[in-house]
Design a protein around this nucleic acid. Structure first.
Length: 285
DNA sequence: AGTTAAACCTGGTTGC
DNA sequence: TGCAACCAGGTTTAAC
């Protein structure tokens, strides 16, 4: 469910409300993708810092609330939680959180509300790391390509990155090495907007088309962000509001329906076990 | 080395 | 109506 816009919407929803909050308790549900990586008791008393995002990961800094005497029994000297929403995860910030439901697998109970992860499929993760640039966080983040809105990501560098892969452009976008953030929905939408065929080998994309694609990725993600995050059925922001980008999708999930540009039926193929929607008339190889 | 499958899970939808 | 098959926003890990 969550691609970059949804994760960013989530970040904005929890950042200020949680800042400066003290951790009162931690509750773990069923196992997620990876173990937490520390004893829950180590988090107690730590203070929440500014929440940041890298790709589809969120970083929730947790620092000692008191300067000097930190070495209390079992308390950590600080670090943070690296969170990922996987395919079906969402975060909620609850005041007076009720009993956890069957898919609520992580609670961070703080002085300013309970941050609760609901994730039916449990592909998501909450992992303790002593620092953003230390293992395990650094290891996970090291595989990520540039942020889509990083000014250092230029048409030239993007084109160069695409030249390094012979795989279909759709697969390259999903892999996130050239640019992070475009998941299955937005990759389809961006390729449609750029009029590029999803099966076209990445390294056969010209410089002008690469520039167009980068612009399409950026505008697609920015649009989704404006609309509050999108996606299919079960994404909701921290206030429980669902996004509505799906109604804006030009090709995703529209197999057989007329292309909004030319009227030809939208096609669906499976690439790397993922559904790809495109218009074979508008999108050229 | 680079690309592609398999794996991790549950739930909703579709089809017989 | 019941149940099996298939599908779903991601990404790591193992295998060609």
């Amino acid at each position: 469910m969550p691609e970059l816009p949804e994760v960013e919407v989530t970040r904005r929803g929890i950042d200020m409300p949680l800042r400066g909050a003290h951790v009162h308790a931690v509750r773990l549900g069923k196992p997620l993708r990876w173990p937490l990586g520390c004893a829950p008791a180590e988090l107690l008393g730590l203070k929440v810092g500014p929440v940041s995002r890298r790709g589809k990961y969120l970083w929730l800094p947790l620092v000692p609330a008191l300067p000097a005497p930190a070495a209390e029994a079992g308390r950590s000297s600080g670090g943070g939680l690296l969170l990922h929403l996987g395919m079906s995860g969402s975060l909620a910030l609850l005041q007076g959180a009720g009993e956890p439901g069957p898919h609520d697998h992580f609670d961070l109970v703080t002085s300013q509300g309970t941050l609760r992860l609901n994730d039916p499929r449990r592909f998501g993760a909450v992992v303790w790391s002593a620092a953003l640039d230390a293992a395990p966080a650094a290891t996970l983040l090291s595989r990520l390509g540039p942020e889509p809105f990083d000014p250092e990501l230029t048409p030239g560098s993007f084109h160069a990155a695409l030249q390094r892969h012979a795989a279909p452009i759709k697969a390259v976008l999903l892999a996130g090495g050239a640019v992070v953030g475009a998941g299955n929905i937005y990759a389809c939408e961006a390729l449609f907007q750029a009029r590029i065929h999803p099966l076209l080998p990445s390294n056969r994309i010209s410089r002008p088309r690469a520039e167009r694609l980068l612009g399409a990725v950026r505008s697609t993600l920015a649009r989704a962000l404006e609309l509050g995050g999108s996606t299919l059925r079960d994404f909701s922001d921290v206030h429980g509001m669902s996004g509505n980008y799906q109604q804006q999708a030009a090709v995703y999930g529209r197999a057989g329906l007329p292309c909004q540009n030319c009227g030809a039926p939208v096609k669906k193929v499976v690439q790397a076990q993922r559904a790809t929607y495109f218009c074979s008339h508008c999108q050229k190889r």
